[in-house]
Each structure stands twice: as structure tokens, then as C-alpha cells.
Design a protein around this nucleic acid. Structure first.
Length: 329
DNA sequence: GTTGCCGGGAA
DNA sequence: TTCCCGGCAAC
């Protein structure tokens, strides 16, 4: 364990500079929805992974730079057709960002494996695998060069390296689809890219949702719990010293995930059930168990804002001593 | 002590 | 269904 945790810490440290370097990034490159609120800056590494998208064309196998691992993430959330109904879903993603072992560039060979069912084709370049997916699986023959990023869902990178540490990490990290993917996920529906699934449990699956390396992101989901606001959690909370044990715990989920038919994303604290799901581990380490009353929101509520004297200005819920509806946390 | 709100009851 | 409030837990 020690080794592992140490490795985690190191990786997170080493990567952060890469990721965060240009503060500019978040604002410009991403589609607007993100940047603001929570993710931005504070946390060391969680905020940055988006920025990799552009450069991450790792067509050159010889340079398995950080972007690769990032790329694998990218897969989960394709930048192209993302937000629909996903509101906070994404935030949860951030969590997972961290654990990825992106490491120094040394003797590693990167291959790309098609995750499409019964395919498993392995190519040495991302471009190649994307093309393969586009043409063979997605049937986009004509528009060969057109890529909306969907292919990303269907392949994963495989690092063939000699690095011991890397091995250790990869085995732990959720990003080892090579292990998990083959056994077709029992619940293809259950797990699907948040992008499309959002919170809806639509049954219509795009090819995408069917075979994507979902397990990867399951991992992150919960955060859930904290929906939007919780955004912060990931970054800072996670890697605090005492958070280390925590990170470990959540790694297992990918494996254990049983495919509960629920969209991993959310977090709207709404349903009590949602919370407990996969995320439990992540988001609420110390929290009491679920059944208990939910933690009090931090925001000011009608009572505090308007005061007792202006009770008529309160939202009805507050007036009735119910959960405030005006200042929702 | 204050505040948020669950659980439950009365109208 | 609407309105209230006792009481508990988090602050």
C-alpha cells in the first residue's frame, strides 16, 4: 500500500505542472460551460485535464507523453457532444482525473486497442485506431476524416512498458481497460458515457453507450454527491495527506461495479438512493451513513437572509420549516 | 444559542 | 394540499 500511495502522490505532483501550466486554458479552449465555477483552479490537477484535448493526438507512438493518459480520459467525456443534460455529471469526472498515472516518458510503448465488442483490434497509433473504429464500427466510411470524437469511446490505450512503477499504477488505476473491458460489462446500459446518458435512463443506446469503456468513468461518478457545488471536493479534498487512503479506496469500484442501472452521474442530492451508489466511497468518506439527515447546507437561507421579521419574504419551504427552495445548496 | 429542516399533525 | 411546529442535529 505504501508504495502505491507514494506513487499516487508522486504522479499527482509531477503531473500538476503539466496540466495547470497555462491558466489561460480553461477559459479559452473549453466550451464555456465549464470553466467557471468550481473547477477552475484551486486543485492541483483536477482542473486541468480538459486542456489536453487538443494536443492529444498521439499519433506518434514513440512519445507517450502525458496526454495519452489524459486521452484515455478524454474518452469518457468527449468534448464534442457533451453537455446536454449533464450538469454536474462532469464535475464528478474530475475526480478521476487524478489517479491516472501519467508519468514520465520513458520506456513505454503505447498501443491502442479497440474496445468494440468482439473486436479487440490493436493498433499502434491513435489515428489508426480511430480510423478503424470510424470505418469498421461506426460505418463512417465516407466521412473518414470527420471526427467528432466519438471514436474515443471505443478504444483505449494500452501501455506496454517496462516500468515497474507504471505497472503498479496501471494495475490499480481505473484506466486499465485491458483488464476490465473484455468481459463485456454486464450492464451495458447501466454504465454509459455520461455525456449521453446524463441523468436520463433512456434505453436507447447509441452504439457509443454500448461498448464504451465505461468502467472507467464509473469510477468517478459520484461525487457525487455533490452535484454542482461539490465540484470542489475533488480537487483539494482528495489529495490531502489524509486523503490518500481515500484515493485507494475508490479505485476498486471499477472492478466491483456491478452495473447498477443508474446513471452514474448524478448527484443531484435529490434522490437519496443515488448517493449511495458507486460514489459513496468517494464523496462521503467521513459522512455519516445515508439514512441520516443530510448535512446542513452552507448557504444562507431565507431565514438568515431576510430575518425573522421578514418572514413573509421567505420561500414557502422556509416558512414551513422545510428545506429551503430558494437558496438551494 | 442559532439555524436548517425532518417528521408529523391540524386544518 | 396547505400550513405549522416540535424537536433534533449541525453549527
Amino acid at each position: 500500500m505504501d508504495k502505491v500511495t507514494a506513487a499516487m502522490v508522486l504522479t499527482s505532483l509531477s503531473t500538476s505542472p503539466l496540466v495547470r501550466s497555462p491558466p489561460v486554458r480553461p477559459n479559452e479552449s473549453l466550451n464555456g460551460s465549464w470553466k467557471e465555477g468550481g473547477f477552475v483552479p484551486s486543485s492541483t490537477s483536477s482542473s486541468g485535464y480538459w486542456s489536453w484535448n487538443a494536443p492529444s493526438d498521439q499519433s506518434n507512438p514513440s512519445t507517450p507523453s502525458p496526454p495519452l493518459s489524459a486521452d484515455s480520459f478524454k474518452a469518457f467525456r468527449t468534448p464534442s457532444q457533451p453537455d446536454d443534460g449533464i450538469d454536474e455529471g462532469e464535475t464528478s469526472n474530475l475526480l478521476f482525473d487524478e489517479p491516472i498515472p501519467r508519468k514520465r516518458k520513458n520506456s513505454m510503448k503505447v498501443m491502442f486497442k479497440c474496445l468494440w465488442k468482439n473486436c479487440g483490434k490493436v493498433l499502434s497509433t491513435a489515428a489508426g485506431i480511430q480510423k478503424h473504429i470510424r470505418t469498421i464500427h461506426l460505418g463512417r466510411v465516407g466521412e473518414s476524416d470527420y471526427s467528432d470524437g466519438e471514436e474515443d469511446f471505443y478504444y483505449t490505450e494500452i501501455r506496454l512498458n517496462t516500468d515497474s512503477v507504471a505497472d503498479g499504477l496501471s494495475s490499480l488505476s481505473p484506466v486499465s481497460p485491458s483488464l476490465a473491458s473484455p468481459p463485456s460489462f454486464p450492464t451495458q446500459d447501466a454504465i454509459r458515457p455520461e455525456t449521453s446518458c446524463a441523468k436520463t435512463e433512456t434505453k436507447v443506446m447509441t452504439p457509443l453507450s454500448r461498448s464504451a469503456p465505461t468502467n472507467l468513468y464509473l469510477v468517478h461518478t459520484d461525487h457525487a454527491y455533490q452535484a454542482t457545488p461539490p465540484v470542489n471536493i475533488p480537487g483539494s479534498a482528495k489529495f490531502t495527506p489524509n486523503g490518500s487512503s481515500f484515493s485507494i479506496s475508490w479505485q476498486s469500484p471499477p472492478v466491483t461495479f456491478t452495473g447498477i442501472p443508474v446513471s452514474p452521474t448524478h448527484n443531484r442530492p435529490a434522490g437519496s438512493g443515488e448517493q449511495k451508489q458507486s460514489h459513496t466511497v468517494l464523496s462521503s468518506p467521513p459522512r455519516v451513513a445515508f439514512g441520516l439527515r443530510k448535512p446542513r447546507g452552507e448557504g444562507k437561507k431565507c431565514r438568515k437572509v431576510y430575518g425573522m421579521e421578514n418572514r413573509d419574504m421567505w420561500c414557502t419551504a422556509c416558512r414551513w420549516k422545510k428545506a429551503c427552495q430558494r437558496f438551494i445548496d
